[in-house]
Write a protein that binds this DNA or RNA. Sequence first.
DNA 1: GACCAGGCACATC
DNA 2: GATGTGCATGGT
Length: 234
Amino acid sequence: MFDKEIGKQLKAIYRALYRAYGPQHWWPGDTPFEVMVGAVLTQNTAWANVEKAMTNLKRERLLTPSRMFNTDPEKLASLIRPCGYFNIKTKRLRHLLSFIHILYSGSLTRMFSTDPGLLRQQLLEVNGIGPETSDAILLYAGEKPFFVVDTYTRRIFSRQGLISSDADYHALQGLFMDNLPSDARFYNEYHALIVRVGKEHCKKTRPLCSACPIRCERGPVSVLPIGSSREKTI
DNA sequence: GACCAGGCACATC
DNA sequence: GATGTGCATGGT
């Protein structure tokens, strides 16, 4: 539900992250299809390992829907091996590819011309595409305004006291989408910044992060202005 | 050697 | 509906 104060806090956190890190230029990928493949391969996996798999796929020139769809599954699995879960991810990629071919004749342009809410429902019906992967595809491949929620988002914003640590995906997504303007470029940058600060400061078992620009251990939205030692609450 | 990383589906209770 | 488990490689 819309809450002006929560909106202000979310914007203050965004500003603090952007001041600290600047633009993140997400998603790392040259084409919408590459972004979609990356979204599946990164499931519960460090991005560095996904890059190794993507390098293999590029070398074999398989980063188009039709070429990947026509590739022997065993070959595909061997190429994506470095990113882990390679058997299950091969199946998930093939489910996604079947979906694209059957419903959209293999055309991502056609796919992303569909009503975004409907497309989201369709993607969620694809086996292996859950809410985060679906929203990552919509936002980063399709430039549709869906906020992407991941483990860092839950960890950081529950530590900030803005949401319960056991809130479900849609409650977390609503925190952002109900209280911030619906803007794909803004959501893009915000999520990328969350991952950036998450990787650097918000480890699973880390309660101490004094250098973190949003300093979750201090509670809700207390940020330091750049170049000042004086604390300012926004 | 343990722990973790930009999830998801499925089994079981 | 809530909780537990399998999937797997590579970096720290």
